[in-house]
């Protein structure tokens, strides 16, 4: 038995070692490349050993690229998205669990169904909506024949136009509704004793007061967990900011990073510069995880002591 446990230990250690290599290998290559010069890379291909150009490359990120500005974009987008997602999920879950609404079950199922419809598969329709948010109003005016009347009275039918493409709001809004977040809060609220709400009502607190005084403080951990998760996904979001932004000044850092490689065929990208950018862009989510990781685990386990 002892021998068995021993060999099991060795096997487990080997697997772990393999895993660590798998994860740290690319990170090491990123770091090594970021610390070499472009010329070194052209000469010897992959950079296996670190060089002395790291600070030089980082300085170039700040002087030669728009990454710092784009990081501000990312920060704004990711923070707003995290805040809005948390607020919306929290409110939706409270409405579903806290009140005996007749259609709560159906609504919950529909919200869960949106988990299977991520932005990546509805990117074209989302683009259409974002390019004119008021299109449904136009359609409604046409369909009800109201536009005919308006055309006669004012001389021209009404056609409303409001594009949110290439705005921060446009980057954020389509990603705010979050099925997983709503589910997380719903499950958390269901672990709370039902008598808590009744006790608060006896104490004279209405639903809003109950939400602020009791629900919100109790939901601290799931809140923090969802905040970190949505912040990270907002920061690393690629497809939607790429599609929805049209000027470099509006792009997010991850998109800007990808744009650092030249569009022309055959040119070797400036990998040291790109990797230095990658290092800088990763710092913020890394710091986020480092600060809030205990919430991340506790919030997802959903056990409040």
């Amino acid at each position: 038995m002892v021998e068995n446990a021993h060999s099991l230990n060795i096997a487990a250690s080997l697997v772990l070692l393999l895993g660590i290599t798998y994860i740290l290998g690319p990170l090491y290559l990123t770091f090594a490349t970021a610390s070499q010069s472009y010329e070194y890379l052209l000469r010897s291909g992959l950079a296996w050993i670190p060089g002395d150009q790291l600070f030089n490359n980082i300085a170039r990120i700040f002087t030669e690229t728009r990454i710092p500005l784009q990081m501000l974009n990312s920060l704004l987008v990711a923070l707003s998205q995290a805040v809005a997602t948390c607020a919306l999920s929290f409110l939706a879950a409270y409405a579903i669990v806290g009140f005996r609404a007749r259609w709560a079950g159906v609504v919950f199922a529909l919200i869960l169904a949106t988990i299977m419809l991520p932005l990546d598969i509805r990117v074209i329709t989302t683009y259409q909506v974002a390019s004119n948010v008021l299109a449904p109003v136009n359609w409604l005016l046409d369909a009800t024949g109201l536009n005919g009347v308006i055309g006669e009275v004012f001389g021209a039918p009404l056609h409303l136009e409001w594009s949110v493409l290439n705005t921060h709001f446009g980057f954020i809004a389509p990603l705010v509704a979050h099925g997983t977040g709503t589910f997380l809060f719903c499950q958390f609220f269901r672990t709370l004793p039902a008598d808590l709400f009744k006790a608060a009502r006896m104490d004279g607190a209405g639903p809003v007061r109950f939400m602020f005084d009791i629900l919100l403080p109790l939901a601290r951990t799931p809140f923090a967990a969802l905040f970190v998760l949505t912040f990270l996904s907002g920061w690393t979001q690629y497809l939607w900011p790429l599609v929805a932004s049209s000027t470099p000044d509006m792009q997010t850092a991850v998109v800007g990073l990808a744009r650092l490689s030249p569009d022309t065929d055959g040119a070797v990208p400036d990998f040291p510069l790109i990797m230095a950018g990658a290092l800088i862009v990763s710092i913020i989510p890394l710091a986020m995880i480092a600060l809030l990781q205990r919430y991340l685990v506790r919030g997802l386990v959903l056990s409040e002591k």
Partner: peptide
Amino acid sequence: CAMVFQNYALYPHMSVFDNVAYSLKVA
């Protein structure tokens, strides 16, 4: 009316003082 519940239904994040004082605060 005031009520005492089977599983107490105390507010877990509040101190004993705040639990007892909550209804007065709301009022």
